[in-house]
Design a binder for these strands. Structure first.
Lengths: 202, 202
DNA sequence: GTCTATAAGGTGATAGAC
DNA sequence: GTCTATCACCTTATAGAC
């Protein structure tokens, strides 16, 4: 961390602060402290809290959303293996950034501005994924399902239990962290089987 | 709204403000304005922003979490009908309060305090649900599955697509609200069938 | 590029009249 | 119970020395 240039130190510190506390809860002083520099330097590099936030928000989006396409167009040839691979990798990625989904959702819901454009600007093309699913249906390998619903189901089951970890932990395990981690580890396999069981045609 | 007493007017206004902007983003002035009263009155009734927030947070929790148990112990006798009933009702409830899941999760993640106790204090007893699931497994009507995983899958697929609506809307429908609402309406039936297809033993 | 000092405005909270 | 006026503090942002 110490051998980073100042700009990168700021970005790292801001990432931690914004993602933990959200835009309105984040403090420029806290970011400066975490980066080990002076508050005035933040404005020298990024001009305002808002500008700095935008940089971090884009970073957060890029950490989770495009990965989604990247993993789905994986080397696996079998459709069910693709699902297995996706679920395992995506849960792993989200577990490394557990606060990012909640951060993105909260900012999109509370911020009246044009943050949503950050997502549109990704120009995510789902056509190959839709096509892949439709092919499986047409060739009688999986039951008919609207592609959007299949994707949503997979993503929901992968993200939500991690995003909502404090609640899950409290309700299922009285706050026990170890039991929670075991559950998520298990889900890397079981969620995929749950999905495959649902759509497979015997 | 005008014929409510002052305290209720404040609670309603605070609910809207806190759930939309979160604790740190909410403004006491905005709450007073929405309630049509003076800022000083907020402190007369609730002493501080923090106290008022606690009231709202507890309200938000009660709107979503216990409902979960209430619906599951529904009058339906058939297990699959229970699932159908739960998914339909829960998606409907969440759609009426679409910002609450994100609000709860954000506050639990960013607030270092003891908000989590609000959930523990509910003393949610899942044993009847676990037992119900285990019975279905023992009697060979559904495939073996860890009850926690089944519950998590159902809840994830019911909540996440609503909680993350701005992203879903943007990615799937270029922001089109009507198409999004149709999708969610459809999911009230389809999510249940997706689950039942996965666990049913033919 | 990096710092200290300070400006400028906002925010929760209270005092005190009615 | 409800209001106006005001305090005390915090936060972003900038000026200016080095």
């Amino acid at each position: 961390m110490e051998d980073l240039n100042t700009e990168d130190k700021i970005v790292n510190a801001a990432e931690a602060e914004f993602i933990e506390r959200g835009y309105s809860g984040a403090r420029m002083q806290a970011i400066a402290d975490k980066a080990g520099i002076n508050k005035a330097l933040l404005h020298y590099y990024f001009r305002s809290k808002e500008k700095l936030f935008e940089v971090i928000f884009k970073l957060a989006i890029k950490m989770l959303i495009p990965k989604f396409i990247g993993i789905i167009t994986s080397p696996e040839t079998d459709f069910f293996d693709k699902i297995r691979y996706f679920v395992k990798e995506y849960i792993t990625v989200v577990m490394k950034n557990p606060h990012i989904p909640g951060f993105i959702i909260h900012e999109l819901n509370s911020n009246n501005s044009s943050l949503i454009n950050v997502i549109s600007d990704l120009n995510l093309n789902l056509s190959p994924v839709y096509k892949m699913i439709q092919e499986e249906i047409d060739e009688g390998r999986i039951k008919p399902i609207r592609p959007e619903n299949l994707i949503l189901n997979i993503v929901s089951m992968s993200i939500f239990p991690i995003e909502a970890s404090p609640i899950i932990k409290a309700i299922f395990f009285k706050g026990n962290q170890k039991q929670y981690l075991e559950l998520i580890e298990q889900r890397k396999e079981e969620v995929a089987e749950f999905i495959i069981n649902s759509i497979r045609i015997k």
